[in-house]
Structures are given as C-alpha cells and as structure tokens.
C-alpha cells in the first residue's frame, strides 16, 4: 500500500514527532509508515486522514499485489 503521509505532513509543516503525538503513536511508527514498512490499522489510517482533513483514499492507495 502506497501512502502520501510524508507529503501531507510536509504540507502542514509537521515534524514526525508532532504528528505521532497528535494521533497517539510513536515517532518510529510514523517513520515506518512513511517508508512503507508498516501498514497502519484502519483506525490509525482514519485518524491520519482526519488530521490531514482529507479522505483516507487520498492518503492511502492500494498497490498492485495488495
């Protein structure tokens, strides 16, 4: 699954740590999501999308093979 978390975070001028604190996870989890090493749960994906004020499909996108 591809995601645009890094781009959206840059748009809001947020550090990984700030984003992590706002949605209640560790900075390392944000780092892992941005590097496609961890696929977040539906709840976490919805929290991220809500924070960026965008539909979840605009942040997360299925890839071939998913």
């Amino acid at each position: 699954m591809k995601n645009r978390v890094k781009e959206e975070r840059a748009r809001l001028n947020l550090q990984q740590q700030e984003l992590a604190e706002r949605i209640g996870v560790s900075r390392q989890t944000i780092h892992s999501i941005e590097n496609n090493r961890y696929v977040p749960s539906t709840v976490l994906a919805l929290k991220i999308a809500a924070l960026f004020q965008k539909p979840v499909e605009e942040i997360f996108e299925l890839e071939e093979g998913d």
């Binding site: 209640g24 996870v25 560790s26 900075r27 390392q28 989890t29 892992s32 961890y38 977040p40 749960s41 976490l44």
Partner: peptide, 9 residues
C-alpha cells in the same frame, strides 16, 4: 514506553 499498534504487531 511507546507501545502502540506497530509494537503490538
């Protein structure tokens, strides 16, 4: 200390 869903997995 920073247990979240990724750590649980």
């Amino acid at each position: 200390r920073d247990e979240d869903e990724r750590v649980r997995l």
